[in-house]
């Protein structure tokens, strides 16, 4: 890639990273309060955030450490809480620019998060490594500093502001899912089914006893596999059933 092109990609990544970083800062702040309860110092919590970059994974870490869990328990819980990143990593491996170098993948991998993954997948054609690094340059400090501040001064913020800020992350998820649902009726239906089944799983007897992480994994695998069987995608990432219809309409 040419230098000028790389610079443009990096700047674009920075711009995408700003709203993500601000959102992270806010969420990390409340996470920091959890860390403090678990006995983490400001430095320890900051280190955990910088290395893990995972809201559910860190929440699990802090609560388990507070409960005096064993190392094995922590390892298993991290596996469950972060298993969706395994799927995202597979998906991202297809989306990364073919020129992405091997060593660059080791850095990108560390920061596969729901939002950055969403932004990368939302790009036309390929996602370059430099674009991803641009997002990381804002998001990692936002997440880390937010956590540290949460430990240091978490009790100062009024409760109603903390409550309001807690939906920010979900707002971001919605912003990632809605545009493709607008374009494709099949994606819209898959999203609708996902929301319905997830709500059912959360309240149904027995099923609701499963942890949130496990429910997420089970539903993701079942629904995505079902959609893949019913509505396969062609090599360019278009749903075949919808493409045929378009062709038919043109004729």
């Amino acid at each position: 890639m040419k230098k000028r092109e790389a610079k443009k990609e990096f700047t674009h990544g920075l711009k995408m990273g700003v709203p993500i970083g601000i959102g992270y800062f806010v969420v990390a702040f409340s996470l920091g309060i959890n860390a403090k309860v678990a006995g983490f110092t400001t430095i320890q919590a900051g280190l955990a955030s910088m290395l893990l970059m995972a809201s559910a994974g860190e929440y699990a870490l802090f609560t388990l450490v507070a409960a005096g869990a064993s190392y094995v328990e922590i390892a298993v819980m991290e596996l469950v809480a972060n298993a969706r990143y395994l799927l995202m990593s597979c998906a991202l491996s297809q989306k990364l620019h073919p020129e992405t170098k091997f060593f660059q993948r080791f850095f990108i991998g560390q920061s596969i998060t729901d939002e950055m993954f969403g932004a990368a997948i939302g790009r036309d054609k390929f996602c370059t490594a430099v674009f991803y690094f641009g997002m990381m340059a804002v998001s990692i400090p936002g997440w880390t500093i937010g956590t540290m501040l949460g430990v240091a001064v978490g009790n100062i913020l009024p409760a109603n502001i903390v409550t309001a800020l807690s939906v920010g992350l979900y707002g971001m998820f919605i912003a990632i899912v809605v545009p493709p649902s607008k374009k494709s009726r099949i994606v819209f239906c898959v999203v609708l089914v996902s929301a319905a089944l997830s709500t059912l799983f959360a309240f149904a007897p027995l099923l609701s006893k499963l942890s949130e992480g496990i429910r997420t994994i089970i539903l993701t695998i079942i629904i995505s596999a079902g959609a893949a069987l019913l509505f396969p995608v062609d090599d360019d990432g278009n749903i075949i059933a919808e493409k045929k219809k378009e062709v038919a309409n043109e004729q």
């Binding site: 969706r84 799927l87 995202m88 597979c90 998906a91 297809q94 729901d114 993954f117 969403g118 997948i121 409550t163 309001a164 807690s166 939906v167 979900y170 998820f173 919605i174 990632i176 899912v177 493709p180 649902s181 994606v187 898959v190 999203v191 996902s194 929301a195 089944l197 997830s198 709500t199 959360a202 309240f203 949130e212 429910r215 997420t216 539903l219 993701t220 629904i223 995505s224 596999a225 959609a227 893949a228 069987l229 509505f231 396969p232 995608v233 090599d235 990432g237």
Partner: peptide, 26 residues
């Protein structure tokens, strides 16, 4: 199949994580 599966994964996971969690978060 794998290609199609991976195409749907992000939309499904993000939706599952958002609903019903957003309704219960406040």
């Amino acid at each position: 199949f794998i290609k199609s599966f991976l195409f749907y994964v992000p939309y499904v996971t993000l939706t599952v994580m958002t609903f019903p969690a957003i309704v219960m978060a406040t």
